[in-house]
């Protein structure tokens, strides 16, 4: 006996997650480009795109609950659906970070942005999206080993965040007139850093559905490392 219908529906859900993930991934890369170019139209479009991501998340959630109610999955099947519910929440929140950066772009004044800083933002976005793609591949494959390894990439994003933080704080001290501007940019860095953190959460869910173990996957350089640098998430 096999469960063809269940398998088909599960595969469809997995495709939808990849679609949602790729939409979030693309939006993040686009938003750092929009920041560099000060492209207000693109920023507003990306801000509005969050609604599409949210709807997609709700649609997957509904399909997931329908599958639980109609197919009564057990064991690994149940764990994968529980994990999907968590993963789509993470992706939706990652979409919120993109939306937040889009909004910051519309709030920035005409002051020029230091090229170094923009490069750091690009690097953070690039590293984070690579982690996300690897994390989603590991999720679909149920690859616990990969899921455990991916969060270490978060250290590099954290390092960049610390660098940006110090640069901006120094700038604020040197020139208090830039405090508003620098605070906005600090929020950009914060959103990028949180984006990468949520990739680790996706990896935790992969580990859970693949092995049944619930475990917090910290990067080697865990978040207590620089408590003073952390901006409360307000979540």
């Amino acid at each position: 006996m096999t469960r063809n219908l269940f398998e088909q529906q599960l595969h469809r859900l997995q495709d939808e997650i990849l679609e949602l993930g790729s939409s979030v991934d693309k939006s993040l890369l686009e938003v750092v480009v929009a920041l560099r170019r000060r492209d207000l139209a693109a920023a507003r479009r990306l801000e509005a795109h969050d609604e599409v991501i949210n709807k997609k998340r709700f649609a997957i959630e509904e399909d997931c609950l329908t599958l639980i109610a109609t197919q009564q999955p057990m064991a690994r099947d149940l764990r994968i659906l529980a994990a999907i519910l968590e993963v789509i929440t993470e992706l939706e929140r990652m979409g919120d970070y993109v939306k937040g950066i889009g909004h910051i772009i519309t709030m920035l004044g005409p002051e020029p942005l230091p090229p170094d800083l923009l490069d750091h933002f690009d690097a953070m976005a690039s590293k984070s999206t690579k982690m996300l793609r690897r994390a989603l591949d590991a999720f679909i494959a149920g690859d616990a080993k990969a899921a455990k390894a991916i969060p270490t990439g978060d250290d590099e994003v954290d390092k960049l965040y610390n660098l940006v933080y110090r640069e901006l704080v120094n700038q604020m001290i040197a020139n208090p007139d830039t405090i508003d501007h620098a605070t906005h940019l600090l929020w950009v860095a914060h959103n990028l850093e949180r984006f990468a953190d949520r990739v680790s959460n996706i990896c935790e869910r992969t580990l859970f559905f693949a092995t049944g173990e619930m475990m917090e996957l910290r990067s080697t350089n865990d978040e207590t490392k620089h408590p003073s640098y952390r901006i409360p998430d307000g979540e």
Partner: peptide
């Protein structure tokens, strides 16, 4: 048993993939 069985046979049975 129904969320994290240890044996493959149990997993296959409770997920309806037995036989």
């Amino acid at each position: 048993i129904f969320t994290k069985p240890e044996k493959k046979e149990t997993e296959d049975y409770v997920t309806g993939r037995f036989g």
